[in-house]
Simulated scan of single mutants.
Amino acid sequence: MPDLTPSSRAERRRSTERRILDAARGLFAERGYERTTIRAVATSAGVDPALVMQYFGNKQELFRRSVHTPLDRSADGLETPADLLLATLGVKLAGLPETSLAMLRSMLTHPEAAEAVRAGLNTQIDEIAEAVAGEDARLRAALTVMLMVGVTIGHQLLDIEALRDASPERIAAVLRPAVQALIEP
C-alpha cells in the first residue's frame, strides 16, 4: 500500500486545515453557528481544540472560512463572470452544499454568524467586482450576489413551488439576462 501521509510540513498543515474545515462545515450545517463549539469541531477533526484556535483564531473566523466558496475562474467552458455565477448557482440548487446550509441556517439568528457571513459575502462581492468592468462595479457585484442568495433561499429553504419545479438549468437560463445586465454592461 502506498504511504498517503503528507510528506512536508506545509502539506501536513494544509491537510490538517482541510480536516478542520470539513469538520466545521458538517457541524455548522447540522447544528448551526450557536450550537457548534470549537471543542466539537476539534473532536470531529481528530485534533486538539488549541490547534483549531491556532489555525483560525476564533469561532467566527472558522465559520467565515468554512462557508466561503471562492470562485473557480479556471472552470472549463465558463467564458464570462455571468457563466461562472450561474454555474455556481446551479450547483447550489442541485444540492445545497454544507457550507451554504450552514450559512443559511445561522446568518439570521446569530449576530456573530451574521458578521461572518457578511464578511464572506463581501469577499465574494470583491471577487466578482474585480471581474466586472465599468461604473458601480462593486454595487452591481453586490446585487448579483444577493440575487443568487435570494434564489438559493427560495429554492432550498422556502421551497417556493415555481423554483422547486424548475430545473437548475432552466433557472440559470431565465436568470442569465438579468445577471449579464448586472455584471456585463
Results as ranks from 00 to 15, higher is better:
Ile20Ala: 03
Leu21Lys: 12
Leu21Ser: 09
Leu21Trp: 07
Leu21Gly: 07
Leu21Arg: 15
Asp22Ser: 14
Ala23Asn: 01
Ala23Asp: 03
Ala24Tyr: 12
Ala24Arg: 12
Ala24Gly: 11
Arg25Trp: 06
Gly26Met: 04
Gly26Ser: 12
Leu27Ile: 09
Phe28Pro: 00
Ala29Gln: 10
Glu30Gly: 07
Glu30Asp: 14
Arg31Thr: 06
Arg31Met: 05
Arg31Gln: 14
Arg31Glu: 07
Gly32Met: 11
Gly32Cys: 10
Tyr33Trp: 08
Tyr33Lys: 03
Tyr33Ser: 00
Glu34Cys: 01
Arg35Phe: 11
Arg35Leu: 12
Arg35Trp: 10
Arg35Ile: 04
Thr36Leu: 06
Thr37Ile: 06
Thr37Pro: 02
Thr37Ala: 04
Thr37Arg: 07
Ile38His: 00
Ile38Asn: 03
Ile38Tyr: 01
Arg39Lys: 14
Ala40Gly: 12
Val41Cys: 01
Val41Thr: 05
Thr43Asp: 15
Ser44Trp: 06
Ser44Cys: 10
Ser44Val: 03
Ala45Phe: 08
Ala45Val: 02
Ala45Gly: 07
Ala45Glu: 01
Ala45Lys: 10
Ala45Tyr: 09
Gly46Gln: 10
Gly46Cys: 13
Val47Asn: 12
Val47Ile: 14
Val47Arg: 15
Val47Met: 11
Asp48Cys: 04
Pro49Asp: 12
Ala50Val: 11
Ala50Gly: 15
Ala50His: 13
Leu51Phe: 08
Leu51Ala: 11
Leu51Pro: 07
Val52Lys: 04
Met53Leu: 15
Met53Glu: 01
Gln54Lys: 14
Gln54Val: 05
Tyr55Val: 07
Phe56Asn: 11
Phe56Ile: 03
Phe56Cys: 09
Phe56Gln: 07
Phe56Arg: 04
Phe56Lys: 01
Phe56Thr: 04
Gly57Ile: 03
Asn58Pro: 03
Lys59Leu: 08
Lys59Phe: 10
Lys59Trp: 09
Lys59His: 05
Lys59Gln: 07
Lys59Ala: 06
Lys59Glu: 05
Gln60Ser: 13
Gln60Pro: 03
Glu61Lys: 08
Glu61Gln: 15
Glu61Pro: 02
Glu61Met: 00
Leu62Glu: 02
Leu62Phe: 01
Leu62Thr: 00
Phe63Ile: 00
Arg64Ser: 02
Arg64Ala: 13
Arg65His: 00
Ser66Asn: 01
Ser66Gln: 07
Val67Arg: 00
His68Met: 06
Pro70Ile: 13
Pro70Lys: 14
Leu71Val: 14
Asp72Tyr: 00
Ser74Phe: 02
Ser74Trp: 04
Ala75Asn: 07
Ala75Gly: 12
Asp76Ala: 13
Asp76Gln: 12
Asp76Ile: 04
Gly77Ile: 05
Gly77Met: 05
Gly77Asp: 09
Leu78Ser: 08
Leu78Arg: 15
Leu78Glu: 14
Glu79Pro: 00
Thr80Ile: 06
Pro81Lys: 11
Pro81Val: 06
Ala82Thr: 14
Ala82Gly: 11
Ala82His: 11
Asp83Glu: 09
Leu84Met: 14
Leu85Arg: 10
Leu85Met: 15
Leu86Ile: 05
Leu86Glu: 02
Ala87Val: 08
Ala87Trp: 14
Ala87Glu: 07
Thr88Pro: 00
Thr88Trp: 09
Leu89Trp: 13
Leu89Glu: 12
Leu89Pro: 12
